[in-house]
Design a protein around this nucleic acid. Structure first.
Lengths: 234, 234
DNA sequence: TCGCATTTGTACGTATGTATC
DNA sequence: GGATACATACGTACAAATGCG
């Protein structure tokens, strides 16, 4: 997070969050922001672009950049994929149900674009928000890419560990959202009844160089989870 | 669609779709694209940016812009909110179940940010893809914004009508995805059983000036629908 | 209705940084 | 280490939409 436009974006996001622009409901003009941050117009525009893509603002030509007040509380913003911890903060608790090293069979190897027999960490976790069961995650991490995971690490935010400790750059995430029927096991863990609906997110996460490091299936508590997609017309 | 970077983006998207880059799995370099389209580097980069946001490509610094081959077939790409028709083409059929003019009560007025008593078109439609029931849509259109809708128009693509006929500019869309339990009525229309899961999308669509023109609740057939979210780390 | 000031959008140009191969 | 290719950042000019008088 050292480049100018990201720093500026983060600062503006913070200001929006703090309600600095509640009166005008608009950001300062580009001209004013150039003055404030002492950077070029392009840099300001890149920062605003980022804010726009995160769904925080919407620029209207000739008028200004308006703050978009959406009720994100308790929802997962699909534009901000940082794992649960960074969205819900310290209200998240994690119970590790299973943690083991396996070898990729043909199907898993195909899914994770690796060789058959590649060592893979398999982790099953139950994650709760404010003590309410929120999601069961079945995760597969390629050990060739993430060489070391411990029970302690997987009890917290694995993404944070990869980014901050391993200094690996997460590049992009493919996510597929479907609904299904709760299995007996998942229902028990989530405190629901088998046969009830499940909100399912199936994910592939890639490093910047295009290597898949994480494949996971998240079985969400349908009574608690809302996915949010704030999109701009392109 | 008259600006250069959009024209170039569309052309490249077409080329990708036609499999022009199947061999290299990469786009030509920025330098080559500048030569091909005879525009500046910034313009090429804006076009690639758009492709990236639509999830078609992923640029890797120092290496190239790679084609992202994701199985979009039969899935709804959350990045391309154009309504069903433009994603599935002529395989979409629409049955209008209800079409009437109502007045906004307090709750609806609050949701649609309009006055109580505002005339609202209410439309219930069953939409099928290749003759399989796909989604039931309950839509509310503000008549002050969309003055005229007919049974004929709502049998097709309402969004296309608003954009191409009314020449209104769609600005942005908020979407909330949840799972729930199928009601008896919805289950019957979708050819499913009451109590089975429903994949639900609740949407608010805004014009560029910030006015809500459409509020809708889409009850999806959970056996058919997959939502796709291709995101880049920001 | 027209015109003007404001504000964002598009487009071009240039230099330098940084990751990959 | 050098060549290649994308990323960041600066600057400039003009277009287009909005809003006000």
């Amino acid at each position: 997070m050292e480049v100018k436009y990201k720093i500026i974006c983060d600062d503006m996001a913070q200001n929006i969050h703090n309600g600095m622009y509640l009166g005008s409901k608009k950001l300062p003009t580009e001209e004013e922001l150039i003055e404030k941050y002492q950077v070029s117009r392009n840099t300001i525009r890149k920062a605003i672009d980022l804010l726009t893509r995160k769904g925080l603002v919407i620029p209207i030509q000739g008028s200004g950049v308006f703050i978009r007040n959406v009720a994100c509380n308790g929802a997962i913003n699909l534009e901000d994929f940082n794992g649960l911890t960074e969205g819900f903060g310290n209200k998240v608790t994690t119970k590790v149900i299973s943690f083991k090293l396996i070898e990729a069979d043909e199907k898993l190897a195909h899914t994770m674009q690796c060789e058959v027999g590649t060592p893979i960490y398999f982790i099953e976790r139950l994650r709760s928000v404010s003590n309410t069961p929120y999601v069961i995650e079945y995760s597969y991490y390629n050990k060739d890419v993430i060489p070391y995971l411990s029970e302690e690490i997987v009890s917290g935010s694995i993404y944070k560990y990869i980014r901050d400790e391993l200094k690996k750059q997460i590049g992009f995430v493919d996510r597929e959202i479907t609904a299904g029927i709760l299995s007996e096991h998942d229902a028990r863990e989530l405190g629901l009844t088998p046969g009830e609906p499940a909100l399912i997110s199936t994910n592939r996460a890639y490093l910047k160089n295009g290597v898949i490091f994480d494949y996971s299936i998240d079985i969400h508590n349908y009574k608690e989870t809302r996915f949010l997609k704030l999109s701009n017309y392109m």
